[in-house]
Every structure is written in structure tokens, then in C-alpha cells.
Nucleic acid binder design. Structure first.
Lengths: 210, 210
DNA sequence: ATAAAATATGGGGTTTTCCCCATATTTTAT
DNA sequence: ATAAAATATGGGGAAAACCCCATATTTTAT
């Protein structure tokens, strides 16, 4: 009996193409593909449509990989989720794994690696390439960095740092005094070990706050 | 006789998966796949390895789609290049088309659309979905925007704008006077209709200069 | 319950950025 | 060939950002 797989990827061409590859594997077959997490949830309402393995793209418009893996882990923990992404960005790996992903594969892997990964995932219950394991282990050590908490108000401020508004104007938008805005800057600079607004703006963009 | 296709995409899994789809098409067959433009050029040195159609991903590490399509158009204008990308970002479309791409397809297309696109490309010599044509035509009107040229020196400066270096320090790195650095800023701000360094930094990141 | 931490605000001063003025050289285009 | 544009540099001043000081309130944690 072949193990069943569902692919979730908003790039239909890619999803279908992957399906073609997987359907040639002896031990696996694709049940169906979805464009996003929402669609997957709808399918999961039907108990006949729950697969053994979920191949999950991370960046999706409607309900992304992080949200989806969280939902699947909560509602169908028996489904093994393998994350599939372009780059192996540290934060994505940590976020996916801590939200329940059992495997992580890059899209620049070879088809044989995909088969190998699926097999390992099926037998061992998990599959992490060396580079991913490294990230996961090293993330356990530096709990300090993970402790950086950014308040809602600071997040709001970060949105404005990437604009050409000055602090006075940001204060107006945030209904507070310019001093307060400057204190957000100072606090964030301290936490993030930055010195300038440019540094904050770059941080905001690269970490999805803007 | 089937039309030959070469796929260039750094995500091997995707490239191979696409190959699987295309090889099922009656009129087309994949000759080989490459991970980047450099590899393609090496292959093109052998005249037996020049295909009818090139399926070209845009974002690649070594030699990206823009550079690659420029090279191919210059050296092998008979090869029809179809750009393949995640999103249909306006700037990417314009850049690819003005550099010689004859077609543009999103990765969230259906496999049938791919076959249709390849057929049209082969028969008509071009293929642009409606959304892409719209972008191309509207870009012809606002030639002003397209005329924005950023000099090498300004590009170098843009790299530094996203750092926490001040203009004095940037001047040291660029072996010029701080005034000169400030003139780069002023010129860029004028061209890009920006006012602050933060604006420049955001521009630099979003447009791949940093 | 009480201390610690986070939030919000202010005064005042230094540095950096922004923006006006201008000039000499080099490159590009007609 | 000559004008226009781009490059590189400078002076000086206004505005913004940075950074020290401090305080009152609220929230969080032990």
C-alpha cells in the first residue's frame, strides 16, 4: 500500500510538477494538491482526504506554511508535515520545526533526495538535512537571542521606521509624544544592538515588520 | 520533430519536476536543465546543445535571469526565451522583456497553460498573458520612470546606505570626500523622488542593490 | 505585596542628515 | 565641436536624529 501525500503550494505549476515526480516513486502517491492552508483545511474536513504526509510550501498568500503546520499539528498530529522552501533561512526553519514540522527540504534538492527524505520521514518519523539540524541545535543554545521581545507599540513604530516620516510625524500617527517615539527607537536599538534608524528600517524589512 | 527546451532554475527539484511535465507534452521535449546562467553559457559553447526554447527562472544566485536573457539575446537571438517567475512584479517583467524575453509565465500557472504558452511562443514567436501585456504597454507611456539610470558609483553608495555607517565613514570606504557621498545621496533622492536616507535604504533593499 | 520591568514623557546638547548655494572636470550626446 | 549632463568637491545653515539625563505610571513577576 502506497503512502499518501498531499502537496500545498500556491504555485500550481510547481505543485503539479512535484506530483509528477512523486507519482513515479514506488512507495508514495499524491492524493491531491492545494493552493493554500485554507483549502487544505476544507479538504481535511473529509476524513477520507487525510494523507500520511503533507508537503508544505512556506510562503503562501492566504494561509502560509507557519499557520498551516500549526493547525495541522493541533488537529491532525498523525500527519507528518515536511516543509518545502526556497532558502533554508534560519528563522523559517526554527519557526516551522517548533510549530510541528517533522521534515525540511529545500527546493534545490535532487528528486532522489526527495524520495529519500520521504522515506526517512515515513520510517523514522522525521527528516532533517544536516544544515537544518545544525540550525535547530544551535538555536537551542542561544536562548538569549530568542528572548528579544518586541512590544506591539514597538512593532507599530517599526512599520513607520521604513517610511520617510520623521519622529514628530510618526508621533502624530501613533498619538503620542515625539519623546515616546524616540524612546521606542532607543529601546529597539538597545535590544537589537543597532545605532541608527537606518539599521532599524533594515531590520524591520528583513524581519517582516514592514 | 519535437521542439527542444532547456530549463534554467537553481531549484533543481523544480527544474526536474518541470521537465517531467514538459516531457509529457506531445510537441516538446527537455534537452537538459541548468542551475544558473553560467552553466547555460558553458553548455551553449557546444552547438549541439542549443535549444529552440529557453525556460528561464529569474531569481538565481550566480547569474540571474536578467543577465542570462541579455547574454542569450546577444549571442543566440534565435533562441526564444520564456521567463518563469514567482510573482509578476512590474519591474521584473519590464526588465526581462526589454532584455529580450519573448514570453512570461508565472509559476502558479496550470500545466495546460504551460503547454499553451510554449505552443504560442513557438508559433507566434512570443507569449504574454494579459496581465503582462498590460504592464508592458503601460510602461511604454511612462518612459520617464524607465529612464532612471543609476551609475556604478551610486550603486556602490546604495550598498552602504543600508548600513549604519555615516556619510563620513562611507566616504572613507569609497575613497572620496564626504561631500561627494552627499551628492550621491542628493542625486539619488532627486531621481527616485525620495527625501531621506531611510527612503534610499528601503529602495536599495527592495530593488536588490543591498 | 512589593520590586522590577516596561511604558510614556520631558530637558538639553552633540552629531548626522538634509538642503541651499557654488565650481571644476569629465563624459555623453547632437 | 560644443552644449548638456554627470561626476566630484566645497561652505554654511536648518532640521532631524542621536544620546545623555530624569520622572510618573502601568504592567509583570516573585
Amino acid at each position: 500500500m502506497k503512502k499518501t501525500i498531499v502537496i500545498v503550494d500556491d504555485h500550481i505549476l510547481i505543485a503539479k510538477a512535484l506530483q509528477g515526480i512523486i507519482d513515479n516513486f514506488a512507495a508514495f502517491e499524491v492524493m491531491y494538491v492545494c493552493e493554500n492552508g485554507k483549502e487544505l483545511i476544507k479538504n481535511f474536513e473529509n476524513s477520507n482526504k487525510i494523507p500520511d504526509i503533507l508537503l508544505l510550501d512556506i510562503s503562501m498568500p492566504i494561509m502560509d506554511g507557519f499557520e498551516t503546520v500549526t493547525w495541522v499539528t493541533a488537529h491532525h498530529p498523525e500527519v507528518k508535515v515536511m516543509a518545502l522552501s526556497m532558502q533554508g533561512e534560519e528563522k523559517s526553519v526554527i519557526k516551522m520545526v517548533s510549530n510541528g514540522a517533522k521534515g525540511y527540504l529545500l527546493k534545490n534538492a535532487h528528486p532522489v533526495e526527495l524520495e529519500n527524505a520521504l522515506t526517512k520521514l515515513n520510517i523514522n518519523g522525521f527528516f532533517y538535512p544536516d544544515w537544518a539540524s545544525k540550525i535547530i541545535f544551535s538555536s537551542l543554545n542561544k536562548t538569549k537571542d530568542a528572548e528579544i521581545k518586541i512590544s506591539d507599540r514597538e512593532k507599530e513604530f517599526l512599520k513607520y521606521t521604513v517610511t520617510e516620516l520623521n519622529y514628530k510625524e510618526i508621533a502624530d500617527k501613533m498619538f503620542c509624544s515625539p519623546r515616546t517615539v524616540e524612546s521606542y527607537r532607543d529601546q529597539l536599538c538597545e535590544k537589537l544592538e543597532l545605532k541608527t534608524r537606518v539599521g532599524l528600517a533594515v531590520f524591520a524589512i528583513k524581519n517582516g515588520f514592514a
